[in-house]
Each structure stands twice: as C-alpha cells, then as structure tokens.
Amino acid sequence: MKRAHFMLFSLFILLLTGCSDDRFDRIDPHQSFVASVNTLEPSITFFDQSANEIALWPLEKAYTGAVLVGNDAILLYGHQLAEASLYELSTGKHMQTINTGLGVTNAYFDEQTEKIFITNSKTNELTSYTMKGKLQHTVKLHNYPMSMLVSDGKLYVINYKDTILSVISTETMALLDEWDIPTSSHGLVIPNGRDELWVGGHGEGSSPNQTVDIYARSTGEKLKEIPMPLMPVGFSQKNNEIAVVSHGGNILYVVNEDGTIKWQLEIGANPFAVAHFKDTLVVAGYDDHAIYFINNKSIEKKAQTGKGPFHLLVREG
C-alpha cells in the first residue's frame, strides 16, 4: 500500500517537473495579443483584444524589459543580468541566450534589417545582433543610451543621462549625426511622412518635463514644443494618430500628426506605456498594476496585470 502511494507520488512529481521544464505557456501563432512586461515582480501578461488574459509568463530572473523579435520570438533582458534570453512564443521554449553583459537598458528589433539592437549603460555601447542572437557590431555612444527608434535605415538613440541624441545607420552602424536634446529624454516617435522626430522625457532635477519636443529629422534642429504635462514618455502611432502618455500627470494625449491635441484622458496610475492594438488604445498603469483598453475616447475595459507593467508589446495577426 505504502509502495503504491510512493509510486503515485513519484509519478506526480515527475509530471510536475516535466511540465515546468523551462517552458512557458504557448501562445497561438495566429493569436493577436497585447502583452504587458511587468518589472516590479517580473512577469509577462498576455491579453487578447477583449482584454482577456490569455497567458501569464512568470519570470524568475530580474528582467526589466522585453521586445518582440519577428512574429514568434520575444527577447527578455535585464539591467542587472549579464544575459538576455530569446523565447519562442508558439512553444514557450527558450531558444537562445545572448551574452549582453550587465547594464542592458533597452532592446529594439528592426524588421527591415532583421537586427536586434541592444543599448548598454555600463559600457555606453550600442550592439547589433541577428535575429538568432549572433553578435554583429558594436558602437560606442554617450552616457546611458536607452530609447531607440528606427526609421528609413536610421536608428535614433537617446543618451538618457546625456544631452545628445545619436543617429546611427542600421546597415553600417556608422554614426551619422548627433543632436542636442535635454537630459533625461525618453520616448521617440516619427509622425508618418513628416520630417519630424518627437522626443519625450522626464525632465531634469526636480523640474518635470512638460513638453514633447519636435526636431527636424533632416537637420536635428528643434522645431517646436507641444505641451503635454507631465513627463510624456510613452508613444504609439497608428495611421494619422499619435498617442502619448504622460506618466507624471496620468494623462493620455491623442494628437494629430501636426501636433494638435485631439483629445485627452486621465488614465491609470503612473502610466509608462501606450500601444495601438487593432482599433483599441492600450495603456498600462505602473502603480495600479492595470492595463486599460480605450475605445471611443473612454476606458472600455480594465484588466489586472502582474506588478509594475512597464512595456507593452503588440502582435497583430
């Protein structure tokens, strides 16, 4: 009798360990989702269009960010981790480890060149990798490179603790230009078809930034400021509409490409990320651990995420 119990127990343990075999919940390749990357207690929560939670990936390592690589991969990185990990979404399996070294601040995937760009605050370097995680080039930038955006073969990198924005060629990794910007800048967007680069930021010292600064892409010259208090740092663009979240004021601004504010909405608690997901706008509140689905200028749905949603990743099938 006892032996039978033991066998049963052993089988159970075997099953358990078998299930937890370094594998997360699978994500259907045809499933559209918005995923919140939660950093306070690291995890990733996947939602469908109706704000239903479809998967939860609890993360054991102190990941501070994630980026989708292609259609079926996700790259997880951490500022205090020496390695970044590439997972396959459809299987939930670990695919690849990239030795980044400590100090990773951001990762960006350029679909055009199929390159992964990783910025590092310890080395102040920008490194490019292939989709499979193979190291390609490294280029030295300025203090604390972080925010990145690719457009027309140019990678725009904000040096967060510096007053310089670096423009890099995605092909050659050559430094093309450097512009003056305020320190603690964060968040980039390029309105479709315009010679503009919008830069958000936190502000310096005790004074919070109130505006989104617009620079001429061709010259790097500052064109104007659009007041969007306080501390606009999250951007998302779809069609002719740009969504901006100001985490200091808990406000979502929706603006035209010319910078006129169409409407605004007080939303979430300390929201850092905004994303367009199909016809819906999604905002993540870092302090209230919630994700908001906005339609017709109002909150349609609200769902709980893991603690501290910091990034939003969108895949539209």
């Binding site: 967060y160 603690s184 964060h186 936190h202 005790s206 004074s207 985490h247 910091f310």
Partner: peptide
C-alpha cells in the same frame, strides 16, 4: 511634483527624490 515622488522609478534617475521607491509603494 512626480519627480519628487519617485514616479520615474523604473528608470535610472540621477535625481534624489523626496521619497524612495519602497516608500512610494507604501504611500500608494
């Protein structure tokens, strides 16, 4: 001022805010 309230905490902020991240959680 959210700068003073450690609102930018997930970011590495050089500024020494009035309250720390843990205190912010308690206050929230």
């Amino acid at each position: 001022n959210p700068r003073e309230l450690s609102a930018c905490v997930p970011f590495d902020v050089d500024y020494d805010a009035l309250i720390g991240p843990d205190e912010r959680q308690q206050l929230i």
